[in-house]
Design a protein around this nucleic acid. Structure first.
Lengths: 210, 210
DNA sequence: GTCTATAGGGGGATAGAC
DNA sequence: GTCTATCCCCCTATAGAC
């Protein structure tokens, strides 16, 4: 039996860990929960991944690396097809994150990288995110030459916060507005985020460009 | 010996827990660490707070409740003194958070409320934040009457993300920009956030107002 | 490769002396 | 109010049978 719909032990562990990390956090998730949810033996984690720390790292890299590769690829396409188009840059920045959010509960999943200082994960992901951030900062700098490098990075970070905070709490909008607001579908949300971030990024600079 | 500079046992526990929660997360922090850091006995937590869950709740309420009270008070003053001034509303919204950030590492501290689903804390804080959010949404609705209620809440949530993500990782800007950017002092950062959010909130709406 | 069993440590909570 | 000592649970990791 080597059916394609029968996932490997490693795959089942990664899937289960991912779901549990998103729901409960990394620290709060035990190997016992993971192996139980995955339907594999407790010892399988240490056999296949050596330690919980390594598992954590791989769980995140599996999703974040392709996501960032897609963002950079779409940025490259945007710069080629529509040079100077801020909306296209934002689409490259936000789009792949929302795509991933359909597969995983990426909000809590990613949010933990920033707040849960689970040593191993944070360092590696800082590197993954760093490259992407610098590449987008470069693109923004060309479109917004009136802004200093510092303001470019500040506003890119603000724009990251817009999506991080939004997908990090799908429920928040509900209790905030007492039911008045919902996030809508992926395309609606993408348009709203782009509209807000576009205007924020275009705002006059407060510093002299150096 | 009842000196004012000698903190009570409760106070020492709250202070130590707050610092450890901010640095390590709630789940990752044990009562043993807290009492050790506070210089009090392990049993003191259960004596004074009944359980770790209650302690967590009080640690957060001690900071968030006065912070939100201040935001609402400044909003009230802003609406009285400068009706229709979006910048004043944003100052009321962002200012008290940055003030608190000087005392506590409020970023990680608050960030956990959104990502770390430590049951007890989240529910209570959702209520605390809900009232504040609705009050600010109301103020924004008056200043931006062209936006639907849903878009007001979406953009208020985006604006919350701007500050949450920024103070949640003071170091992020450093590795993102490879040293090119820093957050500057409180006043600089406040001005940058207001500049970005002001423009984002003012952007044309994408929906018909209902 | 996959299991059982267990080592070895740390967790929250509590009983009872002072 | 504050301490010590302890209960009982769950954790990660590993040794060793199959």
């Amino acid at each position: 039996m080597n059916e394609t719909n029968v996932r490997s032990t490693q795959g089942k562990i990664l899937d289960a860990a991912e779901q549990l990390f998103a729901r409960q956090g990394i620290e709060a998730t035990s190997l016992r929960q993971i192996t139980s949810e995955a339907g594999v033996n407790l010892a399988a984690v240490n056999y296949h991944f050596n330690s919980k720390d390594t598992l954590v790292k791989l769980v995140y890299l599996r999703r974040v690396r392709p996501m960032n590769a897609m963002r950079l690829e779409r940025l490259r396409q945007a710069e080629e097809a529509k040079p100077g188009d801020l909306d296209a840059v934002l689409e490259a920045y936000y789009g792949p994150v929302l795509d991933l959010a359909e597969v995983v509960n990426i909000g809590l999943f990613l949010g933990r990288l920033y707040t849960e200082p689970h040593g191993v994960a944070c360092e590696v992901l800082a590197e993954e995110m760093g490259e992407t951030a610098r590449r987008f900062a470069q693109a923004l700098g060309r479109i917004l030459p009136h802004l200093s490098a510092r303001e470019i990075f500040l506003r890119l970070n603000f724009s990251a916060g817009v999506i991080a905070h939004t997908i990090g709490g799908r429920e928040k909008l509900g209790w905030m507005s007492q039911g008045l607001a919902d996030m809508g579908d992926k395309q609606q949300l993408l348009r709203e985020m782009k509209q807000y971030a576009n205007a924020g990024l275009m705002a006059p600079g407060l510093e002299q460009r150096t």
